[in-house]
């Protein structure tokens, strides 16, 4: 194991020369992506454990006041590139810019929010730097003695987490699962040291954006933003089962989601899947209907405040992960719930 990570073709790295924890700050529609803000919060903790600074990296065109924001969420420094070449985002171009900055400043760690764009970008940067990268990490630890940053991610199957070390190469890179870490508080008056950087010649990306269409999802709230989620599983029996799930969600002012089997059956879209290969959610209330409670599913609801389970199998593992559970047929229990909730609503009018 100790021999790994020293291919002679790679530019040698002196691990001790690398300092500071970097976070790439993703900008979406003129705003900093929430997942990047969550990551700043967590990375701040890591930076203080390794006695280094938290540095936010921003790349774009006409960034304006946005460069002040990472400081409000804990960044000690902001290094930014503001250049018209970045007016349209291309992973390859932003990636090349990040590589140039990383070669110059030699960060110890470089973390990227695991949004869809982030997951596309981060491995490209890591590969150019010939360093390792860990996908979708959910925890970050610092070794007490060596102060090494260790990235932790769920691997395959059961209740296991893999601790991943990066030997001999730097930065330690990872994409971080959105929503696992909470939003840090915003301190309007906090200021980071701000450094403007420029980048040299960039590689032509070889692609050209022709069109972007925002998906209007006004009526269907994304599950990661919902305070209440009613989630359905294979035990619903058919797509029709989701009608009653959606109705319950509506009455609780929430939205609907589902297990992977519900997605596999084509009952709901993958962007509503909860779990290890779907999304992590952090609602106040999660209602699992006809979901067995496989480890990979429950993984996605660790951050839920309260969990209700409705399942007709008293031995379903979901009851181990529920605050309140009803053993029963959802087809009987939920209509009763809906009746009562309807009554409460009408009573209020």
């Amino acid at each position: 194991m100790s021999i790994s990570g020293q291919c002679p073709d790679w530019i040698p790295v002196n691990v001790n020369e690398h300092k500071n924890v970097w976070v790439y700050v993703e900008i979406e529609n003129g705003q900093i992506h929430e997942a990047s803000i969550q990551l700043l919060g967590k990375a701040k903790e890591v930076a203080s454990k390794v006695n280094s600074k938290l540095v936010a990296i921003m790349i774009g065109s006409n960034l304006g006041k946005l460069i002040d924001e990472p400081g409000m969420y804990g960044a000690d420094e902001v290094i930014y590139v503001d250049d018209s070449r970045f007016e349209t985002y291309y992973a390859i171009m932003s990636g090349e810019a990040m590589v140039q900055l990383a070669m110059k400043y030699k960060p110890e760690a470089f973390l990227v929010a695991g949004t869809m764009r982030g997951r596309e970008l981060a491995p490209y940067v890591a590969n150019h730097l010939r360093t390792g990268i860990t996908a979708d990490l959910t925890m970050i630890e610092v070794d007490e003695k060596t102060k090494e940053i260790i990235l932790i991610r769920p691997p395959f199957g059961a209740w296991q987490l893999a601790h991943i070390r990066t030997l001999r190469r730097r930065p330690v890179m990872g994409s971080v699962r959105p929503n696992v870490f909470p939003m840090p508080p915003k301190e309007e008056n906090r200021k980071a040291i701000i450094t403007k950087e420029t980048v040299d010649e960039l590689y032509e990306p070889g692609l050209e954006l022709i069109e972007r269409v925002e998906i209007k999802s006004s009526e269907e709230k994304p599950i990661e933003k919902a305070e209440v989620i009613v989630s359905g599983g294979k035990g619903l029996g058919s797509k029709d089962g989701f009608e009653i799930v959606k109705r319950l969600a509506e009455l609780l002012n929430g939205t609907y989601a589902g297990s992977r089997k519900a997605v596999d059956m084509g009952w709901i879209q993958h962007d509503r899947q909860v779990g290890q290969t779907g999304k992590t959610v952090r609602p106040n209330l999660y209602v699992a209907v006809a979901i067995s409670g496989a480890a990979q599913h429950v993984f996605g609801i660790r951050e839920a405040k309260r969990v209700i389970a409705i399942n007709n199998d008293p031995n379903a593992p979901i009851f181990e992960s529920a605050d309140y559970g009803v053993v029963g047929d959802y087809k009987q229990v939920i209509p009763e719930l809906i009746k009562l909730l309807d009554g409460i609503k009408n009573g209020k009018k």
């Binding site: 790994s4 990570g5 260790i150 209740w159 296991q160 991943i164 990066t166």
Partner: peptide, 10 residues
């Protein structure tokens, strides 16, 4: 460059 140093139960 990366190795799984250990696994642990959640």
């Amino acid at each position: 460059p990366t190795v799984v140093a250990k696994t642990e139960f959640v």
